[in-house]
Design a protein around this nucleic acid. Sequence first.
DNA 1: GAGTTTGAAACT
DNA 2: CAGTTTCAAACTC
Length: 649
Amino acid sequence: MDVVSPELNSLLPDEIMDTEAIEDIPQSQPDIPMETDTPVAASENLSLCLDTSSTGHTTSSPRFTLKPAMATSTATTKTTDSLTGTSVTTSGLQKLSAPFTISAANHQIILNKVASAQASEAAKAAGMQPQIIKQDGQKLLVTAIGKSGQPIVLQLPHTGSKPGVSLAAGDNKSAAPQYKVVTIGGRTELKPMMATAGNQLTTLQAQQLKAVQNMKPVQSVAVGGVSGAQFKTIIPLATQPNVQQIQVPGSRFHYVRLVTATTASSTGQPSGPSTSSIQTAKPMVVSTGAVRMSVPIVPAQTMKQVAPKPLTSASVVTTTQTQQRLIMPATPLPQIQPNFTNLPPGTVLAPAPGGGNMGYAVVPAQYVTQIQQSPFVTLASGSGFAANTGVQTQAKLPLNGLSTADSTSRQRKPCNCTKSQCLKLYCDCFANGEFCSNCNCNNCFNNLEHETERLKAIKTCLDRNPEAFKPKIGKGKEGESDRRHSKGCNCKRSGCLKNYCECYEAKIMCSSICKCIGCKNFEESPERKTLMHLADAAEVRVQQQTAAKTKLSSQISDLLMRTTPVISSGSGRLPYTFVTKEVLEATCECLLEQAKKAEQTHQHQHQHQHQHQHQAEAERMILEEFGHCLMRIINSAGKAKADCASINC
DNA sequence: GAGTTTGAAACT
DNA sequence: CAGTTTCAAACTC
């Protein structure tokens, strides 16, 4: 099955198209030629279809396919998955608002991206309907309507549904208050939706259509520095699997991940637990036969488990039907909201503690990793996706030139900010989109407890520089190095050979865009080569020392293994009982001291000596010392045995 | 560990 | 946009 058109493939960001990126996203920030505010083109109307296989509601191996939607179609378009029979029905509004549609055998989600308010107005005038989804199994409609661009999430209960039947607009007879309508602006409403007895979501009420008109075209929630995005990203509330938005930095596309809450009720009844849990998401692996795609989740760091920090106030928006959590602000942030589109890469909305009515906070995706590590939060796992247990690793995207693996395997340095409140780019934590954790900072505001301030700070940074939270190390131009600093350095005194230089620090060479003076950080630079050699030598030395310690440790362990049975046997071989732990430790100290001595001798007197000669000399010295140690042990043992014998006599 | 140097970020 | 100040990390002693 190949449902991905070549044109579509060409539009996809590298992270998606990289067939090797399923588990390992390339380090470099991809060049994504899609950062534009232009209205959505026909080719951009994609349908993400979840192929759930024939097992029905149990999605063990979800597969996603990308389908180009017929943006220009004014009539209802029905797309059928050739493998599963999954169908997606879109209405004529698609002409005006290009939706992202996710469909599955039992789940469907439509994410609208409304091109413009005018388009919505036109839609209303034309009496067009919002997206209609019908599907075997659970129905879900997620649309993007709301006043002042406030997204609204509409959701169908997780009840087994009959095959979908679309109803005509205006059918108000079947009030189905199962749909949770949530606005980013802080209004949380429950609005009845029109649906059939079979819970088929068919249309929106006129007032909701009206809201569509008023929606600002730029209201994307999670945007990797994309200004003026035309998308609306909506998070469904109560369905299995859940959906969490995904933003590929720099990409115009918004992706969603389907996640499942552990306790999500399959009957659509409200669930009890008040504790919040945001389901861990997995990279969506899109398989279309010839094309494999993974949908990256977090652009910067590995997300292991998604779980919100313990909250001091209402932090969970729980729908009346299920325990879905909406990760969106619950209160209006008029002065900030418009800049949701410019939030750091992968920004999601997460619960904010102590916020009173402010139920949710805007959190860069990287923060989620920290949030989820909270011990207070249980990880929701569910039946939607198989293998949903335990720690999960999300797709990895670069963080300032470092792959996620790099950035996560390496413990982040704690910051020491004193005056910036960790809300300026001076603070590495803040700049990297992370909460401060185990830092040495003073008066830190880079935490959920100061969400409002942090949000403003993010806005300020983005106002100043829309790319502020984008990785600084990205791909260079064609023909140039794969990695280079996006702005270039401006060094004057360091020669770009110290960590003051951002290029050098990122282990890349300066490029033509650098404005440095006296740069020595270029390919043929002798100074740079010397530094590299020194660094290599240091690394080799560390490796050797590690190997020596390992070897010695192994030998000691071996020795203990041999002697212990003798000691415990009480066989009368008294001398061996002297090889006690204390004796061994003393012996090891002697050997280590000898090794240090050999090293010092080499450094001070024989630096010209070849490496292998030095090693041999060091080994000789250590072995000699070992021999001395053994002799002392044997002598002591012999003496003790003699003493013992004399006592026994 | 204290003090200095450095260059990015922030400010004017 | 350029010059200056602020800031925190890198570096030195």
